[in-house]
Design a protein around this nucleic acid. Structure first.
Lengths: 207, 207
DNA sequence: TTGCTTTTTTACCATTTGGTAAAGATACGA
DNA sequence: TCGTATCTTTACCAAATGGTAAAAAAGCAA
């Protein structure tokens, strides 16, 4: 055996599976709240209910935990975009995308904040994902939207800025939750948000 | 004299004025990029070109620098909202607000990111500003927008969610700059953004 | 120049942080 | 039940971090 590597060839044991997942969940808590540099291994360990050296038995270091999180989440994050069907009804496809993004803000606010933190800080550990994961997909969907536009099925629109607006408005409910909670005095914003965003994007996409 | 307090009663010298402003500028750089916990005094000192103890001669600690930044910036940040004129033309007033917010993203991206970081992390040092600064203003403007809605001058709309959408879409260009740069391959987004947001909000506000 | 105040530097310090070594405990197949 | 491999803990460490004390330097009014 070389250095340590924790059974990289054999199948992970039940304990490994459980603890790795416990650690990643705790790390998601901490990283999403404090960003990469502001998060500490001690915090992650305390949240996970494990000792720090035990954490480092499962991951080689702080950065590996963070990168693992980003890798895992990137797929889930891009799913709704991948699922846009070029052959479907344009308005229906785009509004369904808006709903799903909003739903993800409600279901996975920590994931949304993790990404927001990372982008906000200049995406130093995510450049590759943006370049090789997100960009090709955005290019593809942009072409689809442009075709829909050209065919008169939706209004003429800049596809990339449309996507920016969808991301911004939906993720806002997760990323700026603290502000929204203050301004709405604790009232649940998601039902009204869904209605609001439906009207907004339906209106602007109407041919 | 009691503890230290650095001439809290007399007028600040020219050196004090210059150095405090240098420090705040450097701190804005660092805090906006790494968040409160991820920022270090050493980084701020290096960016400012001063020694760490010299920084602490002008500010009592890391937190005071951060709070000073937030206090200073909150005013500028709320200005466009304050300037909405209840007696003006509703569509014109609201679109002007959108433009100004977008302009602020272009002119002051660091300030936008500082706030985003702070809210993202649960607004632990800004609760008071949200509660006593932002909320009353939002309540007031919301009432104005509701009146405009009821009078049929703009479409029926939830004023708070309208504001959320405006904030989200405009600040997105500053806060998610790293992502936008990747997706736009360095092309300047602001002219197209202005056109896009104008269409979007004009459409949805049309009575 | 002198004397006083303001500003800056040097030399520290206690705590926190990411990480390691190695012993001890636990699981588990034979 | 035994032996081995897996997992966890204890005891550390070097570097970084927020912050301080006090001496040295620079400004500046008389």
């Amino acid at each position: 055996m070389q250095k340590k590597a924790l059974a990289s060839n054999t199948k992970p044991s039940r304990i490994q599976l459980r603890n790795r997942s416990t650690i990643l969940d705790a790390a998601l808590d901490v990283f999403s709240q404090h960003g990469y540099r502001g998060a500490t291994l001690d915090q992650i360990a305390a949240t996970a209910g494990l000792s720090k050296p035990n954490i480092l038995y499962y991951f080689s270091g702080k950065e590996e935990i963070h990168i693992t999180l980003l890798n895992t989440l990137m797929d889930t994050w891009l799913d709704p975009l991948r699922d846009i069907n070029p052959g479907g009804d344009p308005m229906e496809e785009l509004l369904r995308y808006v709903y799903r993004k909003l739903e993800m803000s409600r279901e996975y606010p920590r994931e949304s904040r993790l990404f927001a933190n990372e982008i906000l800080q200049g995406a130093p550990r995510m450049g590759v994902h943006l370049e090789t994961g997100l960009k090709p997909l955005v290019d593809k969907i942009s072409a689809v939207i442009e075709d829909w536009s050209a065919a008169g099925k939706i209004a003429k629109i800049d596809p990339r800025h449309l996507l920016f607006s969808i991301w911004a408005t939906t993720q806002h409910y997760a990323d700026f939750e603290a502000q929204i909670d203050t301004l709405m005095e604790g009232a649940q914003p998601y039902d009204a948000a869904r209605h609001h965003l439906d009207r907004m994007f339906r209106c602007m996409l109407m041919p």
